[in-house]
Design a protein around this nucleic acid. Structure first.
Length: 383
DNA sequence: CTCCAGTAGT
DNA sequence: ACTACTGGAG
């Protein structure tokens, strides 16, 4: 059908010389689409052709796996069914819907994108890659995915799945995230993308990467295009893609305090933009080098929101990893005087009635911490 | 514990 | 080009 090692491949890092012939592409397309129609998963966002639903799902799928996204997508679409609903949404409601999904800049950008769609595109998600790229939070991948999947445009879309598939088929050396290798992969994707069924084509390439051409132990015997795969041909599927190894993690310790008073529990809002931007949390500080946990616990509410606590008791600790930090998060509870909070090292600070805390968007480690509090005191509401 | 996944700011 | 940003699954 096509040469066992497509002409593509290794020598050409960029440029149009690495292309398949029309016959080769046709065979590739026929096999992959036939496989996709048989093997595709029934995912919530595949029920709808609404470009807004496609946009929401693709933004949620950025850096986030299908199984994690599915329930969030359904809740989000039920809460903000149209782009106009999202454009006029209260930011806190969007964060609340997004809590636990991670990368919260997406929850800030998506309503901004919706607002732009309403103001610049008359409430209709635009169909061209350039217009899509003008929406905040929409990069090359998301623009290509929405243009092809929602609008049937013949546009490539290279996510990590597609990058893996293509780097194996063409034995593309180098880290897919590096500039030159990334451009090579996009060139292959652009060359291959179907003109008759771009929707299914891009979805199929991603589905293949996710289900068959997996990072670990790819199922080459189930692969509809194994015949033309250069990496398989060489018995080197595990050498592609050449991912750069992650930097080592740094161990740190944080201390957060559940401050209780007559007015409720002290919650503080993280400033937009950084870690957990826009979300709420218990006052928290990094434990200093050699600092006693109790001392850090005393410091946290004082430095973050200007409240002194007495009667500090440990709640235990949880573990989480955030980018390159491996964090042990210690929880304490203590009594505050209920005086006014001052937003010192936070965007906002409030006393919140314990049973009203469910309305606040918290990051996952904070939820876990509150579950510890609940184990100690069963009167405390579950997060 | 290890692995995995796009965008934007600098 | 480099780096920050999360959480869940295995």
């Amino acid at each position: 059908m096509w040469p066992t090692t497509p002409r593509a491949s290794t020598r050409c890092r960029e440029g149009p010389s690495s292309l398949l012939t029309a016959d080769e592409k046709a065979g590739f397309e026929r096999r992959l689409l036939a496989w996709y129609r048989r093997a595709k998963r029934d995912l919530p966002w595949r029920d709808s052709a609404d470009p807004y639903a496609v946009l929401v799902s693709e933004v949620m799928l950025q850096q986030t796996q299908v199984a994690t996204v599915a329930p969030y997508f359904e809740r989000f679409m039920a809460t903000f069914p149209t782009v106009r609903d999202l454009a006029s949404a209260v930011p806190d409601d969007v964060f609340h819907c997004w809590q636990g999904l991670g990368y919260y800049s997406r929850a800030r950008n998506l309503p901004r994108a919706a607002t732009r769609v309403v103001e610049a595109f008359d409430g209709k998600i635009p169909g061209s890659v350039d217009e899509l790229r003008s929406l905040p939070g929409v990069g090359p991948y998301t623009a290509g995915a929405v243009a092809s999947i929602a609008f049937g445009r013949t546009e490539p879309a290279v996510d990590a799945n597609v990058a893996r598939v293509l780097s194996r088929i063409f034995a593309v050396p180098g880290d897919p995230k590096s500039g030159p290798t990334n451009r090579t992969l996009w060139a292959h994707a652009a060359d291959l993308v179907s003109e008759s069924a771009p929707r299914d084509w891009n979805a199929a390439l991603m589905e293949l990467g996710s289900l068959v051409c997996r990072a670990a132990s790819p199922a080459c015997d189930e692969c509809p295009v194994a015949f033309g795969c250069a990496a398989k041909e060489r018995g080197e599927t595990d050498r592609y893609p050449e991912l750069r190894r992650p930097r080592p993690t740094i161990a740190v310790e944080d201390v957060a305090v559940l401050v209780e008073s007559a007015g409720g529990v002290a919650l503080v809002r993280r400033p937009d933009g950084g870690q957990w931007g826009g979300l709420w949390e218990l006052p928290r500080v990094r434990r200093g080098d050699g600092e006693e946990l109790q001392a850090a616990a005393k410091r946290a509410p004082l430095e973050v929101c200007g409240v002194a606590v007495t009667d500090l008791q440990p709640l235990g600790a949880i573990q989480h990893t955030i980018t390159r930090y491996r964090v042990r998060l210690h929880g304490f509870r203590g009594t505050g005087d209920g005086a006014d909070l001052v937003a010192l090292a936070c965007a906002e600070a409030r006393w919140v009635a314990p049973d009203a805390m469910g309305a606040y968007a918290l990051a996952s480690p904070q939820r876990k911490l509150l579950r510890l509090a609940r184990r100690v005191d069963t009167d405390f509401p579950a997060p």
